[in-house]
């Protein structure tokens, strides 16, 4: 098979059942996918229908039904795996130290690239919260900006709200929050190719911040936000030359981390277009600079 030659309709039809049954190897499956995407919309729909019919064909399936108890065991297994992954995510507090855990799937320095950015946004949110509650913090933080951790310890003695936020910022719970909010999808953004876009409040008094992580290759992106109003639903909007498109929504969790997978889009475009976070009243809360 010539790798540059795309499969025609007949070849796609012939291989559609093999693809759906996982019988093509990685190279062939990738070639099939490439040819599929290059095919007309009509052929694509034909393939989708054919594959959906093939996989449910009763002649290729056992007649036996699962035991009623299997449902509980399956759900238990998935929830256990979810918890395991949450505990395996490297605690943010250790980023920057020499500690490395072999159980972490991606190199910690690559994680740090993304995590640092999130942490940066979180620090910014904390800073805004503190400045509202304690004027002294503003002056102190200027002098202590280089040692934010020390500042937070100091502030914790005098500002109740700052204590709460400061502790949260450095809590190892943050990593598990990221994991439980975004699930395994977040792992795919822990690589050096991930692009980061920061959203800043349109109103300086708002203690909110957000980061959009973009995989430019796939066009997949996630939004991670701090300080969104509890249970308030926000819309993520992308504005480009063609107009505006909603990429998804995120539900606020106050001082807890909020996050959402966004609708897949053009990987390059999302790096340059304007992004906005809009509250349920239609007001822009955050936007890219």
């Amino acid at each position: 098979m010539n790798a540059n030659e795309l499969l025609n309709r007949e070849e796609l039809i012939e291989q559609a059942s093999l693809d759906a049954m996982g019988l093509l190897d990685d190279f062939e499956a990738s070639h099939f996918s490439k040819s599929f995407h290059a095919a007309s919309a009509t052929v694509q729909e034909e393939i989708r229908q054919l594959q959906a019919a093939v996989v449910v064909d009763s002649s290729m399936l056992s007649d036996e039904l699962p035991a009623a108890g299997l449902r509980g065991r399956v759900l238990g297994a998935v929830m256990d795996a979810l918890e395991d992954e949450a505990t395996e995510l490297q605690p943010i507090a250790t980023i920057g130290t020499r500690v490395r855990r072999s159980t972490v799937a991606t190199p910690s320095d690559v994680n740090a690239h993304v995590m640092d950015s999130i942490q940066h946004e979180r620090r910014a949110a904390n800073y805004r919260a503190m400045s509202r509650t304690l004027v002294m913090w503003r002056a102190a933080s200027v002098g202590l900006a280089a040692a934010l951790l020390v500042s937070l310890v100091w502030v914790s003695m005098v500002a109740g709200e700052a204590v709460k936020l400061g502790q949260l910022a450095y809590s190892t719970e943050t990593a598990s929050q990221v994991s439980s909010t975004l699930g395994p999808s977040f792992q795919s953004f822990l690589n050096s190719g991930t692009k980061i876009r920061s959203l800043v409040p349109v109103n300086a008094n708002l203690n909110v911040s957000a980061t959009v992580l973009v995989d430019p290759k796939t066009g997949e992106s996630v939004l991670v936000a701090f300080g969104l109003d509890l249970n308030q639903v926000y819309t993520v909007r992308m504005i480009d030359a063609q107009g505006q498109h909603d990429l998804g929504s995120v539900t606020g969790k106050a001082v807890q981390l909020s996050g959402a997978l966004l609708r897949r889009t053009d990987g390059q475009l999302i790096q340059t277009c304007k992004l906005q976070l809009i509250d349920s009243d239609g007001q822009v809360v955050l936007e890219t600079a």
């Binding site: 996989v55 056992s62 036996e64 699962p66 299997l70 449902r71």
Partner: peptide, 8 residues
């Protein structure tokens, strides 16, 4: 669930 079990 049933479909996956039948395939297995």
């Amino acid at each position: 669930g049933a479909l996956v079990f039948k395939a297995a």
